[in-house]
Design a protein around this nucleic acid. Structure first.
Lengths: 342, 342
DNA sequence: TTGTAAGCGTTATCAG
DNA sequence: CTGATAACGCTTACAA
């Protein structure tokens, strides 16, 4: 049993040298004799020394931790972004403190407080759906803490950002459906007050207009981004209307509801009607028919976001001003069975 | 722009009092005049003071952070456990540092090092599939850092643990299938060297034996826990054998492979054959037929694990010895279409 | 109720 | 190349 953690003092005492020498030896200082370095490292191991980065952070004035705030960790997209972030940050010597805002701006503010209290070296955030007022984030910037926004971003803030090109992803998908010869596409999506769904709708609109189809004549359903909301919609819709040629759901979960509703009414996909989703959830390739959708390269988004943060932290250390960068990631159309009429 | 973070010293200077008084005022010390407390809190706000918990941790010798190591964060099960953990730890004033071992014991060791270096107050771990030797974990215990294992545990270590009752979950599921009148159930699962799959197999065996069926006569496939491995198996199997009555895959992903293989061969589930999985992945209720499986209450496991850690940390602070506890969570059978013959 | 002073474990600076 | 010393920001005996 070890009662007290061994410190560099203990090592120093053991070898009749000073703590500063030990510190230097442990940190590969250039001006240190090779023999003492080895000696120190040996005794460090012998005494089971574990460096105290808390103390080091305090002294150095900067932490080896980075904070990250996401709405929810148990969403496929975000957990993959996290994986991407770690793949860049860990090799650079940083650990992540992850916080969940649970889509609440109050929790988001609290998260920021604890991250600042922990003197993280930087913060990565995808804002909650509630977040319109950005004062709490401006405070972070005022505190000189590097901040990078990703996915759910806001143009009101002058920081580096990484976003998905939802317009383009949606455009590509719509165009793909139109190439199958259909003349109408029902739109199913989340609220267009959210930039994400607004952008996806705009891509859809653009492709329709280019094909000479009036987007205002298309059926359009907006509701909660859930399977059930889409299922309710399609059940009701089928009762009163004829089967449309195609449906584009701007979320895979909604697409799932559409598919279930169509199948229970006896319609065959893709033979009777084409269906597509968005964001390539894991189940998209597991269901029958396999779902055509758009993949968002979540891990790559994480890597890009982390890289921007690293850059900011470096230039901040060097006390140089930094030009904020906005990276836009092109998503990729994933064509599967649900839009492949034989 | 704020150049330097304001400290309690700054507040003290501002009010012509000492830092200790400020510290006490900020921490609700009992013996502090109400008026000064309010005054301090006002100026703290005015000067935009943010507490430095790094410095506090160093001084107090204990951190407000807790470390957590999981194999992978982007698995539905683990991200939900994390959510459960945070729901207990955050209100208690702790933040989580999350690390991924990526199923590698080497990464696991590194993770432990960084967590110890950050002087976390405790560690939660679900060990990697590679981890048989537990020396690195014994070191954590020797360092007096409270440790709690969950899900993937080892009986070789004397710490508190939270586990899923895989035997019982598997037993219930097998019994449910047998009640449908079948006399044979093919077993598909991961390596039985892993305690999880061993336990699930044992539950299956027990139910068979109770029903007077010899488990040794059942077909049994063991392979990687992936859709493809199960798909390959079933394709090959169907070529040389007649269709079995039922298949129990001890992982939803494997069940998915089985279902795809059966469907491409033209078999109807559940009319021709019953299929069940394990762990209730989100896609289980989205596919057709909806998959019968076992739910593991991942969030609850997180809450239980966090609670055990909190208890350990408290008794450790009180310098009392602690009896290690092993909590076993009963999973729940989720009956869906794939085992409901009409 | 408040002030004084020491110290948590490092690292940076200055000297030697 | 190494030693001495101070400081990072906070808490906590002990004293007043």
């Amino acid at each position: 049993m070890i009662r007290k953690q061994t410190t560099i003092q203990d090592i120093a005492q053991h070898l009749n040298i000073t703590a500063s020498t030990v510190s230097r030896a442990l940190n590969d200082h250039p001006k240190i004799k090779k023999s003492t370095k080895e000696l120190v490292q040996q005794t460090a191991k012998k005494l089971n020394y574990q460096p105290n980065s808390i103390a080091a952070s305090l002294r150095k004035g900067r932490a080896t931790t980075v904070g990250m705030i996401v709405p929810r960790i148990n969403r496929h997209f975000f957990s993959n972004v996290i994986t991407g972030v770690e793949s860049v940050l860990n090799p650079a010597g940083f650990n992540l403190i992850i916080c969940q805002s649970e889509e609440s701006i109050e929790k988001e503010k609290e998260n920021l407080k604890t991250l600042i209290a922990n003197r993280v070296g930087g913060i990565l955030i995808s804002i909650s759906i509630e977040t319109k007022n950005l004062k709490h984030l401006e405070k972070v910037i005022a505190h000189q803490i590097p901040l990078v926004m990703f996915d759910r971003i806001s143009d009101k803030l002058d920081v580096s950002k990484v976003e998905n090109d939802d317009v383009s992803g949606s455009y590509d998908l719509t165009k793909h459906i139109l190439e199958k010869g259909v003349k109408e596409i029902v739109w199913v999506g989340g609220p267009r007050s959210s930039s994400i769904y607004k952008n996806r709708y705009n891509g859809y609109k653009k492709a329709l207009n280019e094909a000479g189809i009036d987007h205002e004549k298309q059926v359009c359903f907006e509701g909660p981004i859930t399977l059930d909301s889409a299922l309710d919609f399609i059940r009701l819709y089928l009762k009163k209307n004829k089967l449309p040629e195609a449906i584009f759901a701007a979320s895979d979960y909604m697409a799932m509801g559409i598919i279930q509703g169509l199948q229970e009414a006896g319609h065959k996909i893709p033979d009777d009607i084409l269906v597509a989703g968005y964001s390539n959830e894991p189940f998209a390739e597991l269901i029958s028919p396999k779902l055509t959708t758009v993949d968002q390269f979540s891990e790559e988004m994480g890597r890009a976001t982390a890289q921007l943060l690293l850059d900011e932290m470096e230039t901040k250390n060097a006390n140089t001003t930094h030009n904020h960068i906005k990276t836009t990631l092109k998503p990729k159309l994933i064509i599967r069975e649900s839009t492949q009429k034989k």
